[in-house]
């Protein structure tokens, strides 16, 4: 555990808490992509199956349980409790265009051809693109509430901080996982446009709106 990894995990935790609180406090999931949230639930479920087979640390296990529970809680709020507020007209990204290539890639490029390993690889690849329906929704409506922007910033920062963690681990621990690193770079690059808008607009007190 190094400072980048810890900061990344805290950013990740903060993101899921911001999202749950936003929906709970406003009693609305307007502006949030249910499709991205569904993909994240699939990501956590397939990645953290090793909770049952491999113990790393209390910290590791608790965080895994929290991420799985939070993702299902978010889905429950969006698709059940506050279903009426779900903006499905703007949430139209075709997730099969992500799921099919990601499945194929996980079967082709993995560390080991075993069920758990392929599911882990699948989750890493899927996570890297899971935010696309949400970014697509923001670009379609042309704006995002500030709280949604904070959520996206925290979620994007998490993998960017993991990149620093991987650089640190490469130099100081000789650790290098090309699958995680390449997917992490892709994931972070997808947020770059958003990061730019967040820093130039939201942090200056303006609403995140895209030029028409």
């Amino acid at each position: 555990m190094n400072i980048f990894r810890l900061a990344g995990d805290i950013a990740h935790l903060l993101a899921v808490i911001i999202l749950l609180l936003k929906i709970w406090k406003s009693r609305s999931c307007a502006g949030i992509s249910g499709r991205s949230q569904l993909l994240f639930a699939i990501v956590y479920t397939t990645r953290y199956l090793d909770l049952l087979t491999n113990f790393v640390s209390i910290y590791n296990s608790v965080m895994k349980v929290v991420f799985i529970a939070a993702s299902y809680a978010t889905l429950y709020l969006m698709y059940m409790k506050f279903k009426a507020t779900y903006d499905h007209n703007h949430d139209t990204f075709r997730i099969e265009f992500l799921l099919i290539p990601v499945t194929a890639l996980a079967l082709l490029v993995n560390h080991e051809f075993s069920v758990l390993e392929i599911l882990w690889t699948f989750s890493i690849y899927l996570e890297s693109v899971a935010i696309l329906p949400q970014l697509f929704m923001v670009s379609k409506t042309g704006e995002a509430e500030s709280i949604t922007s904070h959520y996206l910033f925290a979620l994007g920062s998490y993998r960017a901080l993991y990149l620093l963690n991987w650089i640190y681990r490469y130099y100081f621990e000789g650790f290098f996982d090309p699958i995680a690193v390449v997917a992490g770079v892709v994931q972070t690059v997808l947020y770059c446009d958003f990061f730019y808008l967040y820093i130039t607009k939201v942090l200056k007190g303006k609403k995140l709106s895209l030029p028409a």
Binding site: V56, N60, K64, R169, F175, A180
Partner: peptide, 10 residues
């Protein structure tokens, strides 16, 4: 190659 199969990260 390090311990890539351990997946100690989140």
């Amino acid at each position: 190659y390090g311990n890539e199969h351990e997946h100690d990260e989140l």
